[in-house]
Design a binder for these strands. Structure first.
Lengths: 147, 147
DNA sequence: TTCAATTCCGACGAAATTAGTCGGAAATGA
DNA sequence: TCATTTCCGACTAATTTCGTCGGAATTGAA
């Protein structure tokens, strides 16, 4: 029932890019330093996020990564799916992935419904939270701190 | 983000015991056969459930396992916790487990809230579903089938 | 032109977790 | 006494996770 470091670090990195959105490409080294993530490991993750179209990159000096869409158009669910695969507590729930909806035992439908409910509740949180939501939370926290 | 086979099989086994609740101890061999789970593996899981007080056992001939409380008093969350540990997407959310609430970087509080929301939504489903709920779902399905 | 900075790529490796198996001891009812 | 059954701890194989490493390609700036 856990998010692996891929998902956790990926979200951290994307959040970092959100706070720096609009200022040109951010080198991976900076993100890694701020977020305390191994540079070479993060490189892997950014590669996946780039291939999935969530970030764009620029090579060479003054290069780096930036969000390829504004923060309100990127959800946490998208990030997690790229880095951890489908959001599902049980593979057999995932009709897309070749494993059909039928788990072998018809009476198991009851349990299937249980896991489906769990899946839905997870998706509800992850797919309805955007990077912009998080940014605004951060702003509010800063304001609160100042008082 | 997945439930391991420990959790999945454990819930199946407990559901099996629910459908047979009140008829005396059920031998592990029967559960394993009905649920298509390796007998020796299931043995491990039942041992954990017994130590946690969710099932009681009787040794020897005519022995077996049964729920130690009526189905409406056992939640899926209890079963999962015994077999998979705390329900949490991130270890640092778990204040009980020695890893304090503080993740090292104060600004990460925003992300912490995100994961906390996810955790809450998972707990909401798992802690509010009892074995009796599942049994009733099964009864309804049977009724529907008959028509 | 050269050079440092940076992404990109694929292979590799260590550690942890998962998913079991195995052998035998102890209890219990028939 | 014996077949049935739980109980226990150790062991193993496969998979996944969490990275590292070496080097190629690109790019802006001096």
């Amino acid at each position: 029932m856990k998010v692996s470091t891929r998902g956790e670090y990926g979200v951290r990195a994307m959040f970092d890019l959100t706070l720096n959105y609009g200022t040109g490409p951010i080198p991976l080294k900076e993100i890694a330093r701020r977020q305390l993530i191994s540079e070479t490991y993060l490189e892997q993750l950014m590669g996946a996020l780039r291939k999935a179209g969530l970030v764009s990159s620029k090579r060479g000096a003054q290069g780096g990564y930036e969000l390829s869409h504004p923060p309100e158009q990127i959800t946490i669910g998208q990030i997690i799916r790229v880095l951890e695969g489908p959001i599902t507590p049980l593979d057999c729930l995932d009709t897309d992935s070749g494993n059909g909806p039928y788990c072998g035992q018809p009476e198991q439908c009851v349990l299937r419904n249980l896991w489906k409910e769990l899946q839905d509740s997870m998706k509800r949180v992850l797919d309805n939270t955007t990077l912009e939501d998080l940014r605004q939370d951060a702003v509010k926290l800063e304001v609160a701190k100042g008082q």
